[in-house]
Amino acid sequence: MKIEAIKAALPTKKLTNDDILALIEEYSKPTFTGDLKAALSKINFFLRYSGSDTRHWLDKDERPIDLVARAFQEAITEANCDKNDIDLLVYTGIGRGFIEPAAAYHIAASLGLQQAECFDILDACMSWTRTLNIVHSLLQTGRYKRALIVNAECNMRFGGPVFPTVFQLPNVEAIEWSFPAYTLGEAATATILSCDPDREWEFHFKSRPDLADLCNVPLDGYEGYCTPSQRIGLNGINKFTSFGVELHANAFPEFINIFKCLKAPIEEIRAIFPHASSKREWDKVAEALNLKHLLWHIYPTYGNLVSASVPTGIASAIAAGQIKRGDRIAGWVGSAGMSFCAYSFIY
């Protein structure tokens, strides 16, 4: 499978850590019990400790579909193909406007893709990576010639699953299950893929469903679809709840074990693209395997882009001249679920 083009589009509103702290202070003042200044100081420390600096959110006149269209147009231009050449479109990621039908249908209609079969894949921050693996298998069957993967991880809209609810802290304890919300950025990506038997891909996945209650956005009535846990829904129904410290603590050994599954020679890898959940935590894992020098981080600049993290990282590395055609690269992802993946391929 060949990546013919991979592009990312970012919104224009840029926020610093200080902007995030100001928003938390504004929305927490009416509800907070205790020392708010001490809580803000704690969040500030965590942000800077993780390596966070800036992130981008949609401005008032911007829409997720506009970012998708921009990324798609740049991708199709680079791939030198026509819209009608795309016969499969997969929408992937958490940011979405529809539960029914699959978001891919509305994306296809907006982009003018009349020949493409459509469906969605949703697997939290693993979504784009999981889709790569599935599309790789589908292209090998010969059923499709060219596939498009798109996402629009724009989850910070007012009244959405994160903002402002998770910025309305009731007490300092709530930071434990709310902090990851303050690292989120927004982006859309478009990836065009075609079958190429000369480019081998290697994927390794592992799931840890026993950790499923560490990061959730529960729907109304979720209790009937799971074994209930006191961790789920602490910020409310349809709202984001995430225990970031525990996620990374449990992920550390899994990250090491899954990367060791790769058969690709380490000395051939030009760059490794981690999920943008924390620069410091990923550096710790990479240091354990003597791989820190290979990590390409976008977290400090763009924040956690959810399922758009790795494709945005790859697109930015290409633009910066960090990788070129013929280079071997690797992806390294951990996600709510929990799930873990390491994969490698020739760009």
Results as ranks from 00 to 15, higher is better:
130 R>W: 04
168 Q>D: 00
164 P>N: 02
183 T>W: 05
212 A>N: 14
225 Y>R: 15
198 D>I: 10
139 L>N: 00
153 E>H: 13
134 I>Q: 06
228 P>M: 08
193 L>P: 13
205 F>H: 08
150 V>A: 06
216 N>L: 06
203 F>K: 03
144 Y>S: 00
163 F>S: 03
197 P>F: 00
150 V>S: 08
208 R>V: 11
135 V>S: 08
138 L>E: 09
212 A>R: 14
138 L>P: 05
227 T>Q: 14
183 T>G: 08
212 A>Q: 12
196 D>W: 06
202 E>Q: 09
228 P>K: 06
207 S>F: 10
148 L>P: 10
192 I>P: 12
146 R>G: 01
175 I>G: 10
195 C>Q: 02
155 N>L: 08
201 W>A: 14
150 V>R: 08
160 G>Q: 08
179 F>T: 06
150 V>W: 08
188 A>K: 14
160 G>W: 02
141 T>G: 05
140 Q>V: 04
206 K>P: 01
161 P>F: 04
132 L>R: 09
210 D>Y: 06
144 Y>A: 00
124 A>Y: 13
144 Y>W: 03
181 A>W: 10
153 E>Q: 09
190 A>G: 06
185 G>M: 14
130 R>L: 08
130 R>E: 00
211 L>G: 07
141 T>N: 00
174 A>W: 07
205 F>A: 09
195 C>P: 00
153 E>P: 15
191 T>W: 05
189 T>S: 12
229 S>I: 10
189 T>V: 14
176 E>H: 11
201 W>G: 13
154 C>M: 13
218 P>T: 13
146 R>W: 09
187 A>D: 13
168 Q>H: 02
223 E>F: 15
168 Q>W: 09
171 N>D: 14
169 L>W: 01
197 P>Q: 01
139 L>W: 01
154 C>R: 08
127 S>A: 13
155 N>A: 14
211 L>F: 09
228 P>F: 06
189 T>C: 07
190 A>K: 10
228 P>W: 07
214 L>E: 02
149 I>Y: 04
193 L>N: 07
165 T>W: 03
166 V>T: 01
213 D>A: 12
227 T>F: 02
222 Y>F: 15
165 T>I: 00
148 L>W: 07
155 N>W: 01
143 R>M: 06
212 A>F: 11
152 A>H: 15
223 E>K: 11
176 E>R: 05
227 T>H: 10
131 T>C: 04
189 T>N: 11
127 S>Y: 13
195 C>K: 00
133 N>E: 05
134 I>T: 07
142 G>F: 03
205 F>I: 13
138 L>G: 04
180 P>L: 04
196 D>Q: 06
163 F>T: 12
125 C>E: 02
197 P>S: 00
188 A>E: 14
186 E>F: 15
179 F>N: 02
171 N>V: 02
184 L>P: 13
208 R>M: 03
218 P>M: 04
211 L>R: 09
153 E>Y: 15
158 F>L: 02
126 M>A: 15
124 A>I: 15
192 I>K: 09
224 G>I: 13
127 S>H: 08
208 R>N: 02
220 D>E: 10
194 S>Y: 01
191 T>R: 11
202 E>R: 14
209 P>S: 05
184 L>Y: 12
172 V>M: 02
186 E>I: 14
176 E>K: 07
214 L>T: 14
148 L>H: 07
220 D>R: 15
144 Y>R: 00
